[in-house]
Design a protein around this nucleic acid. Structure first.
Length: 340
DNA sequence: CGATTTTGACCTGCGC
DNA sequence: GCGCAGGTCAAAATCG
């Protein structure tokens, strides 16, 4: 039938752009960030010799009010601590993930606790889900009315020929749905680890079939398994700001060795010319577009969405083939080790 | 034979 | 209230 996913895990070219995240970047903190710390990305040492191909990264805040973009990080931090996310911004889009609207428990104020609970005890949400599961398995009585609370999500775009990128974790597909206005279906995956409820959605952009939009939801509660393909796992917590990054922050001071936040680590070779990826206006990925058929992109109604385009800020970081996110970030954003 | 994928049905939330 | 679309379930099929 659909020959779409026959090319699993054998990417030829891959470049990645972070679309958005639930992470509430602590803009009030130091402006010295590295992307790896912002997103808990371990300073990936990829398979020796080959550089990581997380080359193209872009951050588009979907709620500029609450979630500072990379650009914000480059600016002097605003006076008040933005960690509190109470923006009631009128975003009607339910896909808006970094808008912890009233119903969401993702608000930074509860993040740490939530993540703690996630690793130690079940959150209310999880318990509710359990109940729901049981209910469904039995007679499918009406689900609890309890509003389902979303896990923090993080999405990014990857220019790849494969849909399901190997990020080091093992995933099990549990569903596939046709996406409205898109010829490509959306696939739903769950982490196969029993205690881990992380999900991810994978879909191709209808605008540019070569672009895969991956949305992660939740946080892994276990170290990354090394896959058979030799992918490196998510290393244990290395973040500096991990505890304070809203949403996924994980763990707060729970310390622990578990990665409170995951970020896919791609280990594919990237096109040499990827830097044009964000520069070429003809590319249909219109992050700034206010209209899009993709819900992932539709959260731009504010039109204030800002884009982090490494290629425009400096040609050198991207030009280098380091492949590490850190290399893409202006040095001023990097965490000063001395500040540890 | 266990793990994974496929796929239709079902559930839920939201807009009209 | 209804319909639509997204998300999930779970049985069957497929794979290794």
């Amino acid at each position: 039938m659909e020959d779409k996913e026959n090319n699993n895990l054998k990417p030829e070219t891959t470049s990645t752009a972070a679309l958005f995240s639930d992470h509430q970047i602590p803009a009030s903190s130091s402006t010295n960030y590295s992307l790896s710390s912002i997103f808990d990305i371990p300073p990936c040492e990829t398979e020796k010799g080959s550089s990581l191909s997380l080359i193209e990264t872009m951050f588009a805040s979907h709620d500029p009010i609450t979630t500072p973009s990379i650009f914000d990080l480059l600016q002097p931090p605003p006076p008040p601590p933005p960690l509190l996310i109470s923006s009631q911004s009128q975003v009607p889009n339910k896909e808006i993930v970094n808008t912890p609207n009233n119903s969401s428990s993702i608000s930074s104020s509860s993040t740490e606790a939530a993540n703690d609970d996630q690793q130690t005890t079940k959150t209310v949400d999880q318990q509710a889900d359990d109940n729901q599961d049981k209910n469904k398995k039995q007679l499918k009585p009406k689900k609890k009315k309890q509003k389902r609370e979303r896990e923090p999500r993080f999405a990014f775009m990857t220019k790849s020929e494969v849909d399901h990128l190997d990020d080091g974790f093992r995933w099990r597909k549990y569903g596939q749905k046709a996406v409205k206005n898109s010829p490509f279906p959306r696939s739903y995956y769950r982490c196969t680890t029993a205690t881990c409820g992380v999900k991810k959605r994978v879909e191709r952009s209808s605008e540019d079939p070569s672009i895969v939009v991956t949305t992660y939801e939740g946080t892994h509660t276990h170290p990354c398994p090394i896959t058979s393909r030799g992918s490196i796992g998510i290393l244990p917590e290395t973040s500096v700001y991990g505890a304070s990054i809203g949403g996924l922050g994980g763990g707060g001071d729970s310390g622990g060795g578990t990665s409170s936040l995951f970020f896919p680590q791609f280990h594919y070779q990237v096109q040499q010319q990827q830097s044009t990826y964000f520069q070429t206006p003809t590319l249909p990925i219109s992050f700034t577009s206010t209209t899009s058929d993709s819900s992932l992109f539709s959260n731009t109604n504010s039109s204030q969405e800002r884009i982090f385009s490494p290629s425009t800020s400096s040609s050198s970081p991207l030009a280098r083939d380091h492949g590490l996110l850190q290399d893409m970030v202006p040095s001023q954003m990097r965490k000063d080790p001395k500040e540890e």
